[in-house]
């Protein structure tokens, strides 16, 4: 349990460092903080004074950070410079769509990536293997917006099976609208999963315990999924932070490509408008998600590979 405690401390430290960087974004943008926070609103004495008051601009920097962090812990990131709406509300409004897209895309990627990875490893060096590997190379090389545009062209323009834009109404309709974006997201993610699963399975299938299990007459299904896959999953779990990073990036590009009003589109819009408070809120959320996943990966790792519980891991 010392392992988990150390990771918890490391995650907390990282979160504090990230919050400092995110707070600093306000001062990193060109122009004075007051000017940035004013945005396109009329600049009279009263509005200026209000902003100085609201965001404690007259306090020393450390106090400002402290007050900002205290609010941030309660998820209060101020009001959007563009719309005046509280940042948290805007994030809440948009989060559902992004979460659905992410879950849908991940589910497809998980099934396809691990399935194809196992298949390729079983038929190592065959035509199937080569086809799967090629698919994963193309998937890893295609930015999400290109994949998205190609899928749109084939399935929405040529075949007309799916809608071109929009998010639809009602559960079934939304699922239908989200299919192409989710497939786009899954294409990139599955490419990574195939790579790691295939490599892990090839190594695992080569081990003595697999040969021995086969010699004992254990069924092929059990050998594959009970013995080999479990060990092959260890590197896959380790790679999940890389997978998350790829999916987050992909989701932003996909939301812009398919005109879906999710968190990614909100980030790009806010960046274009220099809505620093909104960007701060979104970045902090992103950082928290990334750090939490990292932590979760470490814990999952413990379950996937019990040996780690008993050995000290190099920092």
């Amino acid at each position: 349990m010392i392992f988990i405690a150390r990771r918890l401390v490391a995650a907390a430290v990282l979160l504090v460092i990230m919050s400092g960087a995110v707070f600093g974004l306000l001062y990193a943008s060109p122009g004075s903080a007051e000017q940035v926070l004013l945005g396109t609103r009329v600049a009279n004495e009263e509005t200026r004074e209000n902003i100085r008051q609201r965001y404690n601009l007259d306090e020393p920097l450390t106090t400002q950070y402290w007050l900002w962090a205290k609010d941030a812990v309660r998820l209060d990131f101020g009001e959007s410079i563009r719309t005046g709406e509280p940042v948290l509300n805007a994030i809440k409004d948009r989060a559902q769509l992004s979460l659905r897209l992410g879950a849908y895309g991940f589910a497809v990627a998980f099934v396809a990536g691990i399935g194809l990875g196992v298949l390729a490893a079983m038929r190592n060096r065959s035509g199937i293997d080569r086809a799967v590997v090629s698919l994963s190379v193309v998937g890893a090389s295609s930015p999400a917006f290109v994949t998205g545009v190609f899928l749109l062209y084939v399935f929405a323009v040529l075949l007309g099976w799916f809608p071109v834009f929009g998010q639809g109404e009602g559960a079934m309709d939304q699922l239908w609208h989200l299919t192409l974006p989710a497939l786009t997201l899954a294409f990139g993610a599955a490419a990574l999963l195939i790579r790691f699963t295939r490599a892990g399975m090839i190594t695992a299938l080569d081990q003595d315990y697999v040969t021995f299990a086969r010699a004992r007459g254990v069924s092929e299904g059990r050998v594959l999924f009970g013995y080999a896959l479990r060990n092959a999953m260890i590197p896959v779990v380790t790679a999940s932070t890389v997978l998350l990073a790829a999916m987050l990036t992909g989701a932003v590009l996909i939301e812009v490509t398919f005109a879906l009003p999710g968190l990614g589109a909100l980030l790009v819009d806010s960046v274009a408008f220099k809505d620093v408070l909104m960007v701060q809120g979104l970045t902090m959320l992103l950082a928290a998600v990334a750090i939490l996943t990292n932590l979760l990966t470490d814990v999952l790792y413990l379950f996937a590979d019990p040996r780690i519980r008993y050995t000290r891991v190099a920092p």
Partner: peptide
């Protein structure tokens, strides 16, 4: 070595393109 590798690990977990988007958006 330890500090360089820590930095490397951190950068691996960071969604690079998103960081770039935020930085470019804020800095111009």
């Amino acid at each position: 070595d330890a500090s360089v590798m820590r930095w490397v690990d951190l950068m691996y977990a960071v969604p690079g393109l998103l960081v770039t988007i935020v930085l470019i958006g804020v800095l111009g």
